[in-house]
């Protein structure tokens, strides 16, 4: 069972308190009617399916009930970091350079 850090509660808590909520940083278009069918299809269905760090959403559903973002490595199943909803996508590249 994973331990997940809630960026709102600022506590690291068991996975049981959380629910997965899909890939992160896929904002709903401001004016969906302006999108072509292909663009709308991509928004609805096309996802990264990353091998490695994956930006994804979680909800502290049995806690503060907030949605937040996380970076999880899909190979090791480890959380690299979590951050509040609305915060920009963290840049992981400097870290990779350092390795």
């Amino acid at each position: 069972m994973l331990l997940i850090h809630c960026p709102y509660c600022e506590e690291t808590l068991p996975e049981l308190e959380f629910a997965y909520a899909g890939e992160a940083h896929i904002a709903r278009p401001a004016d969906p009617s302006a999108l072509s069918d292909e663009e709308w299809r991509d928004f609805l269905f096309i996802r990264t399916n990353a091998r490695g760090p994956h930006f994804e959403r979680w909800r502290h559903i049995h806690g503060c009930a907030q949605f937040f973002n996380a970076v999880r490595d899909t190979v090791s199943d480890r959380f690299l970091m979590t951050y509040k909803a609305g915060a920009p996508r963290p840049d992981l590249s400097p870290k990779e350079d350092a390795e």
Binding site: R28, R57, A65, Q66, F67, A85, G86
Partner: peptide
């Protein structure tokens, strides 16, 4: 409720 909260918190804060 989860769906409503999702939109309210993340799309239309």
């Amino acid at each position: 409720l989860n769906m409503m909260e999702d939109y309210l918190q993340t799309e239309w804060p």
